[in-house]
Design a protein around this nucleic acid. Sequence first.
DNA 1: CGTACAACCTCTAGCGACTGGAGGTTCAAG
DNA 2: CTTGAACCTCCAGTCGCTAGAGGTTGTACG
Lengths: 133, 133
Amino acid sequence: MDYAIGEASRLTGIKVPTIRYYEGIGLLAAPARTEGRQRRYRVEDVARLNFIRHARDLGFEMADIAELLALSEGPDQSCKKVDEITRRHLSEVDRRIAQLTALRRELVRMVDECSHGRVGDCRVIETLSGETA
Amino acid sequence: MDYAIGEASRLTGIKVPTIRYYEGIGLLAAPARTEGRQRRYRVEDVARLNFIRHARDLGFEMADIAELLALSEGPDQSCKKVDEITRRHLSEVDRRIAQLTALRRELVRMVDECSHGRVGDCRVIETLSGETA
DNA sequence: CGTACAACCTCTAGCGACTGGAGGTTCAAG
DNA sequence: CTTGAACCTCCAGTCGCTAGAGGTTGTACG
Ligand SMILES: [Zn+2]
Ligand SMILES: [Zn+2]
Ligand SMILES: [Zn+2]
Ligand SMILES: [Zn+2]
């Protein structure tokens, strides 16, 4: 009862080359092979891929995910580290949101101020040319 | 009255290798050289670098910047295109903020639900392992 | 059992936007 | 004229994939 890479891909939504890539970087153990050297995945491999998928969807970096996966393998340990990683990631996300929001404000200001005339009078171009932002 | 690459770097806040990189990808014209093949930048080159710097700070991609630079060279044209690029970029920023905000909500939910016990009971790990996010 | 062909394999290169290093040369101050 | 900081080129690495070339295997159908 095992899956070819394409089936694993369909089940997890992770593209075939990406699954091989994950194996290459050591995020996923090399699976068993058929005699013809084709990969065959077991249910737990697919579960691991799903885990990776969800973590990626939440924006975790590969290094975070590797740690989370390792931690998830010791179910009796304290989850302190797990929560730490998650909170750290959350604050990264917060920082990015703040940065983008500041950016957004500036962009809105620029388009609002533009009187839609000549490039030479365009506030957008003026702002970008300005001495120091 | 021209500047060595290090001076251009100090004046614009763009690192030396990045300036060379910009030249390599054609964003910046190859400047004049000394007899010893060292780059010498003129005031307008530094201005162009400042423009690039500000646009990068606002999150514009290189392709956008190339277009904006080209447009800024025809000051008598209508600034319609400039505004179009800016508005398009603004909506990209909006989309990214929305995505990050959704992500953030989920992360907050996860850490909130965690009761800080065993990894085996951790909601963070559970959520990441869940069938479909 | 033979054949067709989808799916698999490895390997390499490319994306965007830089960044860093090695190893060698030039400029300018003293 | 010497020193050494700053310059030069070229190459590799970052992150997380993605795509392609060119060849092999698994399987379903006749
Ligand atoms: Zn993170
Ligand atoms: Zn305008
Ligand atoms: Zn954009
Ligand atoms: Zn927990």
